[in-house]
Amino acid sequence: MLAYRLRGGDLIVTLSGELDQLSADGARREVDALIAEYRPRRLVLEVGHLEFMDSSGIGMVIGRYKVMRRSGGSVAVRGARGAVEKVFALSGLYEIVERLA
């Protein structure tokens, strides 16, 4: 499940439900289409409503980081908590992706 809004140069995408290999495939297609359409300077992924995420979610974020980098943009993640935050922290992703409170 995915909702989005635009604010300044940010494309803010809110993910909810469960992010695993199956749903990550759909999410990456939708987010890439939004990036192509709106060409944001920064992609902000709001994950506070994610109930579950495995490393497929990390693959999805790294992939979007590469897409954004191509146009000189960046990626930020907001609101990771509980088990989702544990996977983010383990991945080392916060070294390349900004962590917003």
Partner: peptide, 11 residues
Amino acid sequence: GGERAGMGFLV
């Protein structure tokens, strides 16, 4: 070669 993070066993 896809977008798997290669983190499965680490997790």
